[in-house]
Nucleic acid binder design. Structure first.
Length: 573
DNA sequence: GCCGTTTTCGGCCCGACTGTTTTCAGTCG
């Protein structure tokens, strides 16, 4: 019984209860489903270790739901859930995935014409049976068929790196629509979540209709979900849905706050407003009928008694409490990183030379760059000790011709299966920056994998642990590491943990960054660039650092060159 | 069903759009 299994049962119970119009309980189960998905370790393990009391520690889980979770873990079944299923035996997950179908409609479809699966639904729609039902009509029938079509080609969530460019382009085009005063991207994209489900755009416009007309007719639009005076929603050819809202200038801040989310953060703000006898919605903060804030986000937070909370922190992971206590972190800024510490060149699998990479990094405003080509045990033929020495000489020569910029000698050294490194210590000691990384034996059991990387970090030459979990978003699972043990070892050995900014990696991820920051472990933010184009990806890594509450002081390559070199493990430079 | 600087009861965020409907329920975010 995995966490995902438990979460699925909780979510289905919520839907079943919604079908019967049960008040409030469904929200409780829904909340628990989200909470369980957010827990890093298996709930079964938590239960084994700490009993039912430990399960009740999960936010939103009380006595009753804890008992149900424990029953699920112990027996693999839950009578309460089985009863609900027996009453309405339908494929909840499949049917709710269809746009516009909710609990009430699913119940009607089952009771009136016996729809249990998406296949049943499609058959009924094609036979024209759905339009006959109460509260359904011809349009609902068409909408359902279209929804099934979209479901079949659904791609789920999108990596931020895959959508940010297009969204920025749409933003730029909207700015040029006549009568448009202001445009902003909101939602999870503004919070810089590593993957996003949809896009949210906010606009101030003199003639809202003109913006809406333009928006729904954009060349990328394949379907219009809805078009109104203030809100429209479309599906793009990439499969992603995008919402557009037009708001009055006086409500800009409140709307931006509302549509940036997260949902939980917004709910918490509304509760705060209620406590202060105020009402918060997307139009502003109101005392009775009188607007007391709304024009800027700062104003909205201000009347709630809070300092401005940066979007990357709005995930309901303690930011409200920190804001109230005045202990919000002074997050690292998007211009604060001075050097790039992981880059590959034509010496191994990169597309550009050392000179080209250095020139582009300098053009982007960096003060230094570490060249970290792969090492010998990698299948693609990485550098051996002799080649590394040749490269060091080449870099020395290049540095003589540079002003205000330094190329550092480095390597991305493979960690062998036993935790030893594939380059000898003598050579490593000659390098300025040694990154170590896992590229093989990705499937070792947790204890062995953890021992392996900790042994690598214990090497006095290992400055930085590159992309620690080796995950590739939506392609490769992270290696099985006891991340708390790795962070503790990083602290003990003074090894820097990397945030790999490459949008498919973002490794460490935000949650792990937060743990590292809390533990006082230093971070490096690097692009892992394999061509000059990748050098500009740094901001994705900085966003991840910000989402992990990192300040400038937590990041070694926010330091000027001398300070950065001094911050690495002592004794050899 | 959960939760508590409203704490063991009484609350639980709020509004736009759609479709089917003559005033609103359902869904979504």
């Amino acid at each position: 019984m995995t966490n995902a299994d438990i979460a699925r049962v909780m979510r289905e119970i919520a839907v079943f209860l919604d079908m019967d119009g049960v008040p409030f309980k469904p929200r409780a189960y829904e909340k628990v489903a989200y909470a369980i998905e957010a827990v890093d370790e298996p709930i079964a393990g938590i239960y084994q270790r700490g009993g039912i009391k430990a399960v009740e520690e999960i936010p939103g889980v009380g006595k009753s739901i804890a008992e149900k979770i424990v029953t699920l873990i112990d027996t693999g079944k839950l009578p309460y859930y089985e009863e609900l299923r027996k009453k309405t035996p339908v494929d909840v997950a499949g049917l709710t995935a269809i746009e516009g179908l909710g609990p009430k409609n699913i119940k009607t479809l089952y009771q009136e014409i016996g729809v249990r699966t998406v296949a049943d639904l499609e058959k009924a729609a094609l036979a024209g049976k759905i339009r006959e039902l109460p509260h359904f009509g011809e349009k609902s029938e068409q909408k359902i068929l279209k929804g099934i079509g979209f479901l079949k080609q659904r791609s789920g969530r999108f990596p931020l790196g895959a959508v940010l460019a297009l969204m920025s382009e749409i933003e730029a085009r909207l700015v040029k629509v006549p009568g448009v005063h202001r445009v902003a991207i909101a939602g999870s994209i503004r919070r810089r979540k590593e993957t996003v489900g949809d896009g949210d755009i906010l606009v101030i416009a003199r003639k809202p209709e003109a913006v809406m007309d333009y928006f729904v007719a954009m060349p990328e639009v394949v379907h219009v979900h809805g078009k109104g005076h203030t809100k429209s929603s479309v599906k793009l050819n990439t499969g992603m849905d995008v919402d557009l809202r037009v708001v009055p200038a006086a409500s800009w801040g409140a709307a931006l706050n509302y549509f940036t989310g997260s949902k939980d953060h917004n709910v918490a703000l509304r509760r705060l407003a209620i406590e202060k006898k105020l009402k918060l919605n997307e139009y502003g903060v109101f005392r009775g009928d009188k607007a007391v804030a709304g024009k800027t986000e700062e104003e909205v937070y201000g009347v709630l008694g809070l300092p401005y909370i940066p979007p990357e922190l709005r995930e309901m992971t303690g930011e409200i409490e920190a804001a109230q206590a005045g202990t919000l972190p002074d997050l690292i800024g998007y211009d604060d990183v001075r050097g790039d510490l992981q880059t590959q060149t034509t010496w191994t699998d990169g597309a550009n030379s050392i000179e080209e990479m250095a020139a582009e990094a300098q053009r982007l405003g960096r003060e230094y760059i570490a060249i970290t080509d792969h090492t010998k045990s990698l299948a693609m033929m990485g550098a051996d000790e002799k080649q590394l020495r040749q490269q060091m000489k080449a870099i020395d020569k290049l540095n003589k011709g540079l002003q205000g910029f330094t190329i550092l000698k480095g390597a991305e050294v493979n960690i062998n299966k036993d935790g030893s490194l594939d380059i000898d210590d003598e050579t490593l000691a000659e390098l300025d920056v040694v990154g170590v990384a896992v590229h093989s034996h990705l499937n070792l059991p947790r204890a062995e994998q953890t021992r392996r990387v900790i042994r690598a970090m214990e090497n006095p030459n290992a400055d930085i642990f590159f992309h620690p979990t080796a995950r590739v978003l939506q392609k490769r699972e992270p290696i099985d590491l006891d991340i708390d043990a790795v962070i503790a070892a990083a602290k003990r050995t003074r090894t820097v943990l990397e945030i790999d900014a490459y949008p498919e990696r973002l490794d460490l991820k935000d949650e792990h960054v937060r743990k590292a920051v809390d533990a006082g472990v230093k971070l490096a933010i690097d692009t892992d660039a394999h061509s000059v184009h990748h050098l500009s990806y740094l901001h994705f890594g900085i966003a991840t650092a910000r989402r992990g509450w990192a300040t400038r002081a937590d990041v070694v390559n926010a330091l000027p060159l001398r300070g950065f070199l001094r911050s690495l493990k002592g004794g050899r430079r």
